[in-house]
Design a protein around this nucleic acid. Structure first.
Lengths: 337, 337
DNA sequence: CAGCCCGATGTGAGCGATCACATGCCACCC
DNA sequence: GGGTGGCATGTGATCGCTCACATCGGGCTG
């Protein structure tokens, strides 16, 4: 197989081989008009022959554009964010974009800002922020960028483009399902309060309950992890009265939650119904298999790239319609009575 | 907050403001000697005043180095690969490296090769391949690069640098644990046969059994997913005789495996012991809580970056010692008799 | 048939850094 | 006191591309 060590051909090498000027080669490269078809062919042959590819650095230097989009992930290796990132990467390739990733551990404004500055200096063409905690968005909102900033969150802040799964509607659908089955006291195990997604799911739960004329009990506080779900169960067990159903803000917490309930002799779904959120691949094998809201993260990643490309052409492009999660019925929910 | 819209200052702007030549500024930037301290100070003041940062593109163009490392992820959004990627990103920042990611969906040589070519053209300084399936490595091994290629796999192929968790020893430890508890017929649910990690775990299982004078039964074939674990259970149930313990190659499969066993009336650990691999955050809440081998992916990600920096200084740097996974005892394994 | 315009192509500058080399200065030593 | 060497600094070329503009024909128009 050919070594990649030999010095890469330049646009001048191609020009010489094709017997044209470097500018003509550049025209062919960039699909500009006013090149005679025969000339175009000659150049293309030369390009293939030298297996030439233009230097991104040189191009970035002169155009101040880098064909790169930046992804800032502020979360952990959770299923959702990871899937989105992968979807993004996969969609970027075919669109001839490169993805550069950064994981700012902290979400303090200073460290986020420094990552953004670094991105800007790299001439990235857009920045995507995944798993946005509200603190991160706070930090972002002060910055005045002239490139699109996409956030993946539900609240739809003014000033950013945002693409997301409709967490609010998803949450309402989940709660609706429980109500339809006759439940009238429905608890909620919420995600961390600095997560916008968690807030949207909380809001959806509260609103759907409100619309059904049901008072919302005090939500239990979790932090996405199975451990925190387990803790929430312990807290619920300590309460004097508890509902007949629980909407847990993600599947991982639901796992810990159900597990600890079970250990305490409370059976799901006989004693209490549990509905999760995300539909992680494991959910079907929980004990009992978890009824949950399926989110299509892969599609989201792809949609983000698609929307991004549109925004890069037309900064005023409207946000795409949001995906609404769909209900996946398994065995953790039972009709009341 | 200051807008980032204004044209970025160049090295000449800094030079003018500091009253020196651009070359002196460059010297300060690159920490070269032979600059008088007072001059250095003047330049540094000017840099701060203009909040100047050098242009990566210009630098990359002339030096042919990009301060970028490429990460190629050939897997899915699994916990392991995702954690490693995040660990890598986090370690890259402080080292002043940028990470560019690509997800080649397929592992056919052609698509892998094209991603690598793209990386090379970007002047990345090293390429890290995560979740290497053997097919990907096959494709890689034909390519003659002059930058370090790091693979995260256990087999330790000649020709690449490789950093990894010691899957072979981990597997042996897992099987040892079962043997120590009196089990003499130990099944294995393997990962996909094109995964090197899966192969290493399989080899560890076989060797540990062999050393104990136990014949290895035919392994069950999975593909990392809970679904495939469930299928493996179904297959095992169809066998006329089966062992008293099973080493499942990852926790997700173990979940599906145990679930389907349970549904068939086979109880874990009373009827059969199960040990997993990875220690994903959910494992503690499985039914029953899963005994497994804990892998420290985060540390691995950090170690990779560390090793990479070393290799970039000295291409002959020795591979670091490998992390050995540690046993986490929970409730899915029982002593025999 | 002169004049004009437009399509195809070429020429040279410049993006913002580094690198190789030139220069100026002072101290030092014989 | 003049040669020498080393330090501090400056000058110009260069990386590989795109951009703005120049040039060159040929076909159409009046």
């Amino acid at each position: 197989m050919k070594a990649l060590k030999t010095r890469q051909a330049t646009i001048f090498d191609v020009a010489r081989l094709a017997g044209v000027s470097h500018q003509t080669v550049s025209r062919v490269l960039n699909d500009l008009p006013n090149v005679r078809p025969t000339t175009r062919d000659k150049v293309e042959v030369a390009i293939r022959q030298l297996s030439y590819t233009p230097s991104p650095a040189a191009r970035a230097l002169v155009t101040r554009r880098s064909a790169t989009i930046a992804v800032l992930n502020t979360g952990a290796a959770d299923f959702g964010p990871a899937s989105i990132a992968i979807g993004l990467c996969e969609a970027a390739g075919p669109a001839n974009y490169t993805v550069t990733m950064s994981n700012s551990g902290g979400s303090d404004p200073e460290s986020i800002r420094s990552v953004i500055v670094q991105f800007v200096r790299q001439n990235v063409e857009a920045i995507v922020v995944i798993a946005a905690r509200s603190a991160s968005l706070e930090a972002l909102s002060g910055i005045d960028l002239d490139i699109p900033l996409l956030t993946i969150e539900s609240a739809g802040r003014p000033g950013f483009h945002s693409v997301s799964l409709d967490q609010y509607r998803g949450a309402r659908l989940a709660v609706r399902h429980l109500i339809d089955l006759g439940h009238t006291r429905i608890e909620h195990v919420a995600g961390p309060s600095d997560s916008l997604d968690a807030l949207e799911r909380l809001r959806g739960w509260r609103d759907e309950l409100g619309e059904a004329g049901i008072a919302a009990p005090r939500p239990l506080q979790g932090s996405w992890t199975p451990d925190s779900g387990s803790d929430a169960a312990t807290e619920l067990l300590a309460r004097s009265d508890r509902g007949t159903a629980v909407f847990v803000a993600n599947d991982q917490m639901a796992l810990g939650f159900m597990h600890t309930l079970e250990r305490a002799g409370i059976h799901v779904p006989d004693d209490i119904s549990v509905i999760g959120y995300d539909d992680i691949p494991e959910a079907a094998y929980f004990t009992p298999p978890l009824t949950t809201m399926k989110q299509d993260f892969d599609a989201l990643g792809r949609q983000i790239m698609g929307h991004l490309l549109e925004v890069l052409r037309d900064p005023a492009a409207p946000s795409p319609t949001r995906f609404v999660p769909s209900l996946v019925v398994r065995e953790s929910v039972r009709a009341l009575r």
